[in-house]
Amino acid sequence: MDSLMEAEEKLRGFRETIGSQKLYACFECGHCSACCPVKRIRQEYSPRKIIHMVLLDMLDELISSNIVWYCTNCYLCQELCPQGIRIADLILELKNLSFKRGLSPDGIRRQFELLKTQGRIYLLDEFDQKKRKKAGLPQLGGSIDDLRVLLEG
């Protein structure tokens, strides 16, 4: 619960302090939505709308709609914003909050568990290792006990 409150607190602070700019520096030019590769396909997704929902304190609606998971984290909106607003970083924070509330897509949770148990998101089985050996590639997969400790804490 503590970490959830911490995340929400951080996000509220984020509106004020995001990067060297403030979110309300947004003058709605729409660059972020115009260049977004997802927006071209999913009209309901809009980085510009996300900025304004955060400004209007509509965090609950935003998180429960799961719309933030449409973001590919490509950074194009952030790079092209004339006001220097860190849009991709904002959306990443929102995804973190969604995960903490248990609302993230199953695949996202699965990747987290995979990393914790095997140190990588794709398991290299005996077959893969054999293929690697045949191709003259080194065997992979050293001990990751320490990684487990880091992810548990």
Partner: peptide, 9 residues
């Protein structure tokens, strides 16, 4: 792969 779920981790 876990940046979206837990940036610090």
């Amino acid at each position: 792969p876990i940046k979206a779920s837990d940036y610090y981790k």
